[in-house]
Write a protein that binds this DNA or RNA. Structure first.
Length: 877
RNA sequence: GCGGGCGUGGCGGAACGGUAGACGCAACGGACUUAAAAUCCGUUUUCCGCAAGGAAGUGAGGGUUCGAGUCCCUCCGCCCGCACCA
């Protein structure tokens, strides 16, 4: 036998060396590229598989989150490819956005050169990961050859009535000097800057996402390969509620009826007899109107505006109202007048910005009623309750699901159930012509105007004569000017001396270009479709999209559960409506991976310290250069601010991409947060070396003697079972389990290799198992796999090799180990031929020592047999 | 407040309602080495026992079942999303 140890003489030249990824990885990357292994072509008749990871923002360098995301995508792509699919696996750059402009402002670098430099760096880093990407399809959203199609589609959307320009109250980010969409405001702060968002009135472009509210909602049911969590978040975000919109007659303090009534929205119209006041938003037109002649009301409106909408404020805020001196007449109790208040808890942005208050059954209304001494009339009570004794204390009565309740104190509704009363009152409103059934959504239209330079110009022109006119399609793209200055706050496009001056596409007179640019979420709302035909002179070539779309597997962070994923679902619907694509749902299957987390270190002074600067000595952490002791903090998401980052480039340089990839997939399920640890990476590194030694040993194996030991059957079974399990795991994205199976296969192969004097059969089984092993880990460690594959004597490349097929005969078991329980506790086990019947098993089981001991003379009441799995003997006494 | 998820060894985590802890990390013991690293062999849920074997055990308590980490109810803790949405 040849000794595999590096120290031994006489072994082959390869075998005496450690596996060196620094040599092999660039070599195989170059080979794959030269042979265009990953360039996708449409092939009729071959099943296609479109794998896509959310494309990166070119911030400068890749981070571990990218490594995890792209490794998962690559494993899927390589596995599907081997399994016979025609795989599309493209990559691009979400290249517009604020950081490029910040670099321009802070360092005087042009956003374009900053962006393209970053792309070059990051492209190189991604290539060093050995990803099976089709680089011929690369796109950058900041390239006019990309955004011109976005502009063309926007014009089509305008013509299709999916675009609106309106003055509205918008979220203004005072740090980024731009407008934010509702989805981009988190806890009252800008999603990027973290600044408290202000309200401003501005003329803005909107995409009418609300035109698809119900469709976006109901189609979620069909997205059965999306995480339930994401579907639920979108459902809540769209926030559909069914109710009624109806109008109260309004009179003033002198009993004079006003021309206009007060229209409210409610989902609890059955509680109308419990109404004791009405409340309107401080921003309601009626409130604004009255404030013109009422200084106290003006003050109240200011107070409400100052409060904002952040979480803390809402929790603390007391329900407050300002009586307007107006009264709403109850529609069914003509003697009752409901005072109307402007109130701080009514939002202008939802429903009608006006409600009726039913204090008995709504906590906010109750708080309000108690403060202003308004009546509290219970109108819904548990069935059987005496209406005379049912009272409300400090808590509103809200019936729970499934509770049996009836209407009380409600005139013609008395005795009805809530659904019956809803129906009856709705009918009555409709008959009397004062109200209609109405579905409301929480979802607002998507404000897409941004007052920034580094984005896609909105292709319209403002003409004093013609108004807003879209740019002619033949004049697209509207390109960004290159000579811009960032010397003052605000939008450089607006400050540019000439760019905005143009002529009207309709009348030819001098006119102004729109200087707002698109929200960058538009750029990422269709890039997946562009990848089907990335160089086409139209947004999407129909045949290409028909072949490749939808994306079969989309992978990214859960932070995009609403923003990007909802916008994309809308945008594709708009593209469908305007004839650019044939489908509505872009992503058939979605996977949201967890974050990469790491321990945090800080000095006693409180400064964060990079993990690379922390050294562990005798159970204590110290700073590598200053030597001062370090405090170990929590394990948190890798972030620059806490410095708990590990640079992928350093890791790849030290261990190679395969090791980094292997670590990312091991142990932790892909949807959970993974903790990056030095010992884990070391472990992955050692395993690459172990595989390399194992393959070397197999490669050097001579022909076994016919008389040698071992029939190889056990190993063959292990290998085929491993392949069957790994195939199943990879199909279902259970990478950590697949990796455990690969460890087991390597262990089984190692055990077989330790047999002295191997028979021919065992030797052949070893060769087969080694091939299987290499093919099985190839999606995770593609470079090592290619190198090992050559060493095993194959002339093909792994990328061009088929996924191994498990032989069902070897996967199936002919004998089984059955656990034997007595009263549910395991007492013994029994290995028998598969498929024994209860009658055959019973005597065998009762004869077992462990069973006899446990029974100890007790009488057997019953024997439960689950074929080939378990026997449970139930006894008494 | 509403909605959702999760709780298993020292750690990451396995486990169609059917032998809890696969696989990995770490630790410990041993072999090899002048030594270290690497490598190889072994041990590692807890408790009792020399062992054979036994007892307990999946956040807590109850239930369904021949059998529960898994299903149901109540509670505790942690995480995430939304949040004055009428």
């Amino acid at each position: 036998m040849t000794c595999p140890r590096p120290c031994c003489e006489g072994s082959g030249p390869m075998a005496s060396e450690r596996y060196n990824p620094r040599d092999t990885e660039p070599r195989w990357q170059a080979w794959w590229a030269e042979n265009r292994c990953f360039e996708a072509r449409e092939e009729a008749g071959k099943p296609k598989y479109y794998v896509l990871e959310m494309f990166p923002y070119p911030s400068g360098r890749i981070h571990m989150g990218h490594v995890r995301n792209y490794t998962m995508g690559d494993v899927i792509a390589r596995f599907r490819r081997a399994a016979g699919y025609n795989v599309l696996h493209p990559m691009g750059w979400d290249a517009f956005g604020m950081p490029a402009e910040n670099a321009a402002i802070e360092r005087g670098i042009h956003p374009a050169s900053w962006t393209y430099d970053n792309i070059a760096t990051m492209r190189g880093q991604l290539k060093s990961m050995g990803l099976s990407l089709d680089w011929s399809r690369e796109v950058a959203t900041c390239d006019p050859s990309y955004y011109q199609h976005e502009q063309a589609m926007f014009i089509d959307f305008m013509n299709a009535g999916l675009v609106e320009r309106k003055v509205s109250q918008v979220n203004w980010d005072p740090v980024d000097h731009t407008v934010l969409a509702n989805e981009q405001v988190i806890d009252g702060r800008g999603w990027r800057s973290g600044a408290v968002v202000e309200k401003r009135e501005l003329a803005q472009w909107f995409l009418k996402i609300t035109a698809f509210s119900d469709d976006l909602l109901s189609a979620l049911d069909g997205l059965d390969k999306w995480p339930e969590k994401v579907r639920l978040m979108q459902k809540n975000w769209i926030g559909r509620s069914e109710g009624m919109r109806f109008t109260f007659a309004v009179e003033d303090a002198h009993g004079k009826t006003l021309d206009d009534g007060l229209t409210v929205f409610t989902t609890r119209h059955e509680t109308i007899f419990g109404a004791s006041f009405c409340a309107i938003s401080a921003d309601h037109p009626l409130s604004k109107h009255l404030a013109q002649h009422d200084e106290d009301l003006q003050a109240f409106r200011k107070e409400v505006a100052a409060l904002g909408t952040s979480e803390e404020n809402i929790e603390k805020a007391e329900k407050k109202g300002y009586p307007l001196g107006l009264y709403a007449r109850h529609p069914f109790r003509k003697d009752v007048k409901l005072p109307i208040y402007a109130a701080n808890f009514v939002l202008m942005g939802y429903g009608e910005g006006a409600v009726f208050g039913c204090p008995a059954h709504d906590q906010r209304d109750l708080d309000f009623a108690r403060k202003y001494h308004l009546p509290v009339i219970p109108v819904v009570a548990p069935k059987g309750t005496d209406p005379k004794t049912f009272t409300i204390g400090d808590e509103a009565y809200v019936e729970k699901d499934g509770e049996d309740t009836v209407l009380i104190n409600s005139g013609f509704l008395d005795g009805l159930s809530v659904p019956e009363a809803k129906e009856k009152v709705a009918h009555r409103f409709e008959v009397e012509g004062i109200g209609t059934r109405k579905v409301n959504h929480r979802l607002r239209d998507w404000g897409v105007s941004r007052q920034r330079y580094w984005g896609c110009p909105i292709p319209v022109v403002h003409c004093d004569t013609c108004g807003v006119v879209p740019v002619k399609k033949e004049d697209l793209p509207v390109k960004l000017p290159e000579d811009v200055k960032f010397d003052k706050p605000g939008n450089p496009l607006d400050h540019h001396p000439t760019w905005k001056h143009t002529s009207c596409p309709a009348c030819g007179k001098p006119a102004r270009r729109e200087t707002d640019t698109f929200d960058t979420f538009i750029d990422s709302s269709w890039y997946f479709a562009r990848f089907c035909s990335p160089q086409a002179g139209m947004p999407v070539v129909a045949e290409a999209a028909r072949y490749w779309m939808p994306v079969d597997q989309y992978i990214g962070g859960v932070e995009h559960a609403i923003l990007h994923l909802l916008y994309s679902r809308f945008f594709v619907r708009a593209m469908h409506k305007t004839g650019h694509i044939h489908l509505d749902e872009p992503f058939a299957s979605l996977f949201t991976q967890g974050m990469v987390i790491h321990e945090t270190f800080r000095t006693e002074a409180g400064d964060w310290v990079l993990p690379a600067d922390a050294v562990h000595k005798e159970g204590q952490w110290f700073h590598a250069t200053t030597g001062e002791p370090l405090l170990v903090g929590g394990v948190e998401k890798m972030s620059k601010s806490k410095k708990n980052v590990v640079d992928p480039e350093t890791i790849i340089a030290a261990y190679g991409a395969d090791t980094a990839r292997w670590f990312m997939l091991s142990d932790t399920p892909p949807e959970r947060d993974i903790e990056w640890t030095e010992s884990g990476v070391e472990g992955a590194w050692r395993f690459t070396q172990r595989l390399w030694r194992l393959v070397n040993d197999v490669a050097e194996l001579g022909k076994g003697a016919a008389s040698g030991a071992g029939d190889g059957l056990e190993l063959r079974r292990a290998a085929h079972r491993a392949i069957a399990a790994i195939t199943d795991d990879l199909m279902n994205l259970r990478f950590n389990r697949a990796i455990a199976r690969i460890f087991e296969l390597a262990n089984a192969l190692g055990t077989a290799m330790a047999v002295k004097d191997k028979s021919v059969a065992l030797t052949e089984a070893i060769r087969e198992a080694a091939d299987f092993l290499v093919l099985a880990f190839a999606p995770m460690m593609p470079h090592l796999a290619e190198e090992a594959w050559q060493l095993l004597g194959h002339r093909t490349a792994v990328v061009n090799s088929a996924w191994p097929k498990a032989d069902p005969a070897l996967v199936a078991r002919d004998d089984v180990t059955i656990a034997v329980q007595v009263n549910g506790k395991r007492r013994d086990e029994l290995t028998v031929a598969k498929g024994l019947t209860q009658a055959e098993l019973e005597p065998l089981v009762l004869a077992l020592d462990g069973v006899k001991r446990a029974l100890d003379g007790k009488s057997v009441a019953k024997i439960i047999v689950v074929p080939d799995r378990i026997v449970n003997i139930v006894c008494k006494g």
